[in-house]
Nucleic acid binder design. Structure first.
Length: 264
DNA sequence: ATGGTAGACGTTCTA
């Protein structure tokens, strides 16, 4: 038996329903964690998703920005969320699955464009958010079966971006952000699961921007979408796949799904 | 030197 969990920043759920249908057909994930749904809860397309087989749903959205959801073929034992940085901007939702796996879905602030927290409130917010995650993980992930997934908006390792030297002063790949991801892993005794399957000396990306011409064709990618497992969960992870192909679909999201397959 | 595209929204903001 196995349990497949997908994480995907869809960059507008309503623009990506046919893409989700294709993911469901091609990969048949049991659980799908979404980020940047960009839809307020009353407009959530729950019926269309239920028709794809995902009748169990938790969603926390808002108009135009942010928003997270977890879709599932299997019922949840428990659902919850937390407010981060005293700001209810719909960046986290959590479920417990049968068997006791605690699944956290995050959308970390992107952080704007100037990598200086003194001059850029959005970057300050991002750094605080990551620090709060580490503080939280210290008490909430150790010794438990926890999987943290989502768009963390940080590519922490050199081979998580297409050109480390060129991008090391760009938001998403600054040493301060990478250090905070390392702090989160350390604080929560968490493992960067995809990097156990694809060694850190090899490139691994999940996002190719829209702006740079032919970003995907030239493989100008970043690994922004993550799966961090607690130590007790790690032995259950059978394989992890990044669906690069989804970036070449019609009207794609700028992110592709990452799939974690657990023995269950 | 500060581009380029996409999405939601509404006469711009965010990524």
């Amino acid at each position: 038996m196995s349990l497949k969990i997908a994480t995907w920043n869809v960059n507008s759920l309503r623009q990506r329903l046919t893409h989700l249908e294709r993911l469901a057909e091609d990969q048949a994930p049991d659980v799908i964690c979404l980020q940047e749904t960009k839809v307020d809860d009353p407009l959530f397309p729950g019926d269309a998703l239920a028709e794809m087989g995902y009748s169990h749903q938790v969603f926390r959205g808002q108009k135009a920005y942010n928003g997270v959801a977890i879709l599932s073929r299997i019922p949840f034992k428990r659902r919850d969320h937390r407010i981060w940085c005293q700001k209810d901007d719909k960046r986290h939702v959590e479920v417990t699955l049968p068997g006791g796996l605690e699944l956290h879905n995050f959308y970390v602030p992107s952080g704007g464009s100037i990598p200086d927290p003194e001059k850029n409130d959005k970057f300050a917010h991002k750094l605080s958010f990551l620090e709060e995650m580490a503080q939280w993980a210290r008490s909430q992930t150790r010794g438990r079966k926890v999987l943290i997934v989502g768009d963390l908006n940080v590519a922490p390792l050199e081979n998580d971006v297409w050109n480390h030297k060129r991008l090391v002063r760009s938001i998403g790949h600054t040493p301060g952000e990478s250090q905070r991801i390392a702090d989160l892993l350390e604080a929560g005794a968490l493992v960067d699961a995809p990097r156990q399957f694809t060694p850190p000396d090899q490139p691994l990306y999940s996002w190719w921007g829209y702006r740079f011409p032919q970003a995907f064709e030239r493989d100008y990618g970043w690994r922004l979408d993550h799966a961090f497992a607690s130590q007790s969960l790690m032995p259950e992870i059978r394989r992890i796949e990044t669906l690069r192909d989804a970036r070449s679909w019609q009207k794609p999201s700028d992110h592709v799904p990452v799939i974690v397959e657990l023995a269950a």
